[in-house]
């Protein structure tokens, strides 16, 4: 059965994507300003909802308040999907998004209460990426494009575009984990640099496959351009972030140049990961997988 398009749900999902992006910026500002422990208690800040907004408290408390708003918006979306969605798996995806943001809030609290130990900051940073990926997926699944009919594309290459897109997203996520590990001083820089090389390889491979195999597909071209653009900018921002960090290593406090580069690098990393998830989904929507091709009737095969 063809799922129906709910414009309001889709727009709400897009609004949630924008709010989550704002939350990612706020979170990156907390880390870059070394403000994570400026508010020692949780869930309240200094025992109140309105703490003194000075110094690092501005970043930490703003992050908490935006997170609260995103939690509420995700709950609304989950309820809305549960009531309005025909696709059963979409209803569960809405609940998964809510579970992820709730888990993220608890991880954020543990990050503060455990003084940034036990890998909590890295776990918090990685779950943020997963949550963003889920929210972007929901926005895509509820779009008019997803629910409309599209001609199926033939994938004649090997490995399949599905495997490539999945590998690409996996490597980007691993790179996000390594980046978070470095930013939170759990690992040295070199694994993140090696990861950048791996991402360069998978993004180039995936982009080349999309170009060669689906040259005339508008969606695949857009996916390829976005993937390449995000990665190109991310690579340059990574160099900028590293340079600013090294050149201000002995500064008495985080400097604006380091903060700007690091925040931009972190947020674009999230966008790149979300883009790689979207590439998986677009491929899934347009290109039948091997077992789907095998299941086609001789008449369907003849028509393709």
């Amino acid at each position: 059965m063809q799922p129906s398009y709910h414009q309001a749900v889709h727009r709400f999902a897009l609004f949630l994507v924008a709010c989550t992006l704002l939350l990612l910026i706020a979170g990156a500002l907390v880390t870059s300003n070394e403000a994570a422990l400026s508010v020692p208690d949780w869930p309240l800040s200094y025992g109140t909802l309105l703490p003194p907004m000075v110094g690092g408290i501005v970043f930490e408390d703003s992050h908490r308040k935006i997170a609260g708003a995103v939690l509420l918006l995700t709950l609304i979306l989950a309820i809305w999907l549960w009531r309005a969605e025909q696709r059963r798996w979409m209803r569960w995806l809405g609940l998964a998004a809510f579970a992820a943001v709730l888990g993220q809030a608890i991880l954020g609290g543990l990050t503060v209460l455990l003084n940034l130990h036990y890998g909590m900051p890295v776990a918090h940073a990685c779950l943020a990426q997963i949550f963003f990926g889920i929210v972007v997926s929901i926005a895509l699944f509820t779009s008019n494009w997803w629910t409309a009919d599209h001609p199926r594309l033939e994938d004649s290459g090997s490995p399949s575009v599905h495997s490539l897109a999945f590998l690409n997203a996996g490597v980007i996520f691993l790179q996000v984990v390594l980046g978070a590990g470095f930013r939170h001083k759990d690992i040295p820089i070199w694994p993140h640099l090696v990861g950048a090389g791996a991402v360069l390889a998978t993004v180039t491979w995936t982009g080349a496959a999309l170009r060669r195999r689906f040259e005339h597909s508008r969606e695949m071209r857009l996916a390829r351009i976005l993937l390449h653009s995000f990665f190109g900018m991310q690579f340059l921002l990574g160099i900028g972030a590293l340079w600013s960090r090294m050149s201000t290593a002995n500064a008495p406090q985080p400097l604006p140049v380091t903060i700007a580069f690091t925040v931009a690098h972190t947020v674009l990393g999230a966008l790149l990961f979300a883009c790689s998830v979207a590439v998986i989904l677009v491929c899934r929507r347009l290109v039948p997988r091997i077992r789907e091709v095998a299941a086609r009737t001789p008449e369907q095969a003849a028509l393709s």
Binding site: L37, S38, V39, P40, Y46, P52, V54, N115, H117
Partner: peptide, 21 residues
């Protein structure tokens, strides 16, 4: 006349983080 938090980061003792208005 401003709020501080005090956060000793020991390796061999107990770590704590407290605010002081």
């Amino acid at each position: 006349q401003t709020t501080h938090n005090i956060h000793p980061v020991p390796k061999n003792n107990r770590e704590w983080n407290k605010s002081q208005a």
